[in-house]
Amino acid sequence: MTVRAVVGRIGFYVLIALITAFMAIPVLWLLFAPFDRTPSLSTSLPEWTWQNFTGLLANPYALTSLGNSVLLALGSMVLVTVLGALAAYALSRVRIPGRDGLLYALLLLSSIVTGTAAMVPIFLLMFELNLIDSQLGVVLVLSGGLLPAAIFILKDFMDGTPRSYEESARVFGAGPLQILRDIVLPVVRPGIATIAVWTVVNVWGNFLTPFILLRSPEKSPAAVVLYTFYTEGGQANLGLISAFSLLYSIPVVAMYVFVNRRYGFRFHGGIKR
């Protein structure tokens, strides 16, 4: 090895170490700060205490907001997977002119639908529908925004399922819903699992939509409640925020590990096993 190569290699590792530290420090903060007597924005070994968590329990909205988050996430997940699977199956199997164009247009527009730009029209629409301060409204808006991408990904899985499976079942006398339930859905299960997790994660982390559409604090999800943790002095209450952040992130991480063990993640359907 030349000196030049050695120096290059050392420089490379230093760079990697810097990037790793950059990524790891916020995670360490999340692990340490909740147990620190005097949490600050810097990461340091904590003086152990449970006081941040007891403070959290005293807050009237903290735990209910986690429940609300679960409600919104599961509601959207059910809606997106059921509607997405049905639509993707139909779009995969029925030939309609301009199908791909339609899908790409939907995909493109969906980023606007849940995006900030469309917040005013969405608010007005929800207002007209009498869905302001309703969790159903939030679920509908979020699902609407996620569906195009879900359909797009699921359609790829459906396309990857050989038609002969369905034709074989048809010859044996199975109807379309029977075929979907017995043959297609089990075959595309990894795709469904991916979409379900992806929906949950998206809804779990969404702040803007529930912040705008919900008014009562007892209906707000965790992402919105987190925003209300101030001290009397109007400063961010880092103790509550860090403890709540930890609780807030555990379900998502747990779900990710569980689903990955059980089904495995795949974002494409076309590749043969």
Partner: peptide, 17 residues
């Protein structure tokens, strides 16, 4: 419909689920 014809078909790729 195919299911009402009292037939059974074996496909080229066998179409085993």
């Amino acid at each position: 419909a195919p299911g009402a014809r009292d037939i059974a078909m074996v496909f080229q790729d066998y179409a085993l689920f």
